[in-house]
């Protein structure tokens, strides 16, 4: 059945309600949108195996201690995070597994910076460790 008005003209579709709804949706998405570009650094995987047992000097894990001010102590040397990449690239140290023992007073940014430098140096086996019961 074709809807025809009494005077024979076709009914006009009003666009105003459509525009109203569109503007409401647009306003909602504009207000609720978050424009942060977020990335992630893996910390642990379910399938992660425990660190491999050292079989020689080249496979022995390197222990990095993160100090409260964000410096790294490794093999008795204190390095800034930006010096770590160069240090790791010497003598193929980057192929060794790395254990990171952060201080509880260090900020999260310091840990992210160290993880960043480890990734830049080509370290593929990184593990965070913590002394149980020690904050």
């Amino acid at each position: 059945m074709k809807p025809v008005r009494r005077n024979g003209t076709l009914p006009r579709v009003t666009l105003v309600p459509l525009i109203d709804v569109l503007f409401i949706l647009l306003f909602y998405f504009m207000v609720t949108s978050v424009y942060l570009d977020l990335d992630m650094i893996p910390v642990s995987k379910v399938s992660d195996l425990p660190p491999p047992v050292a079989v020689g000097q080249s496979e022995a894990p390197l222990m990095l201690r993160l100090t409260p001010v964000g410096n790294v102590v490794v093999q008795g040397q204190t390095l800034r995070p930006d010096e770590l990449t160069e240090w790791l690239q010497k003598d193929d140290r980057a192929v060794r597994p790395v254990l990171v023992l952060p201080s509880g007073q260090a900020p999260v940014q310091a840990l992210a910076s160290v993880m960043d430098e480890l990734a830049r140096a080509g370290v593929t086996r990184t593990r965070l460790i913590r002394i149980e019961g020690h904050p």
């Binding site: 942060l36 990335d39 940014q109």
Partner: peptide, 10 residues
């Protein structure tokens, strides 16, 4: 969040 250059897309 902290800033890091080596992060992967989330």
């Amino acid at each position: 969040p902290p800033v890091a250059g080596s992060g992967r897309d989330m």
